[in-house]
Design a binder for these strands. Sequence first.
DNA 1: CGGTCATATTCGTCAAAGCGTATACATTTC
DNA 2: GAAATGTATACGCTTTGACGAATATGACCG
Lengths: 136, 136
Amino acid sequence: MARKAEFNMEQFFQALGDNTRLRLLNLMGEQEVCVCYFVEILDAPQPKISRHLAYLRKAGIVSARREGKWMHYRIVMPPHVGAMQILRQTLASLKEEKSMQADLARLTKACCAPAKYALEGAPIPASVTEPCCETC
Amino acid sequence: MARKAEFNMEQFFQALGDNTRLRLLNLMGEQEVCVCYFVEILDAPQPKISRHLAYLRKAGIVSARREGKWMHYRIVMPPHVGAMQILRQTLASLKEEKSMQADLARLTKACCAPAKYALEGAPIPASVTEPCCETC
DNA sequence: CGGTCATATTCGTCAAAGCGTATACATTTC
DNA sequence: GAAATGTATACGCTTTGACGAATATGACCG
């Protein structure tokens, strides 16, 4: 039985071949992140963020979850074993870049949830039940 | 001392985001390969092969060596540690795809050198001194 | 139910990149 | 040096994708 799902390497790498998307993936890392944080931290127009998230979703790299008005995105590991390892290695490499570290630092201090995300590193934190405050 | 060279992740992934280039990289694997073999095995117009090789060269993933009329290309591991591991993992994953295995099989049987490449797996085979025959 | 907020999509534009064809360049051979 | 061979580049065309601006959708709130 062929357990290995059909996986499009070409599309996978194309999805990784954009700096905005790499920044988004770095911000997600192990945790679910609300779109409003992406907009704030990347300091980019909201449609741009949304489009790149849609691109990642179509490539099967992230998944979305709605919670009231807010959308939360998280990384979903590809079924393809090799792609999964590549993605893990990519995330690890991103974390070593200074600009990516700066993004992450801004996430922990962002908006009204300075430590909420930083302290809980669960992959799918149901803990994040209040995604935003009055300013976000 | 910052040993880590400036590396463009975005450009790196863009270079991997094309199936023709993935096929070329798979064919190179550990060994140097002559352009004429690429053209024969991918069954593609020679300018197309040449353009993709130039793209990979600009991205710093392959290097070229001239030998008479013939050009030999080989993979050069990126200075960036993470990128190197990603590239290794990518090559390993490619080898598991049937179409890529078929390409490699055609390389070993290609032209007039059925076993020359298959038997010697040295990374930079100086052994390949006669790259082509009358048909290639 | 109308308004507001968060997010997604559409539209038009522009740059990047893939392709086939033709041509240029480099090397060998005669 | 002229022809032949292997490879690279230029050109025009088409597709893809990134972008900003505008608009649509979906959920909450009064």
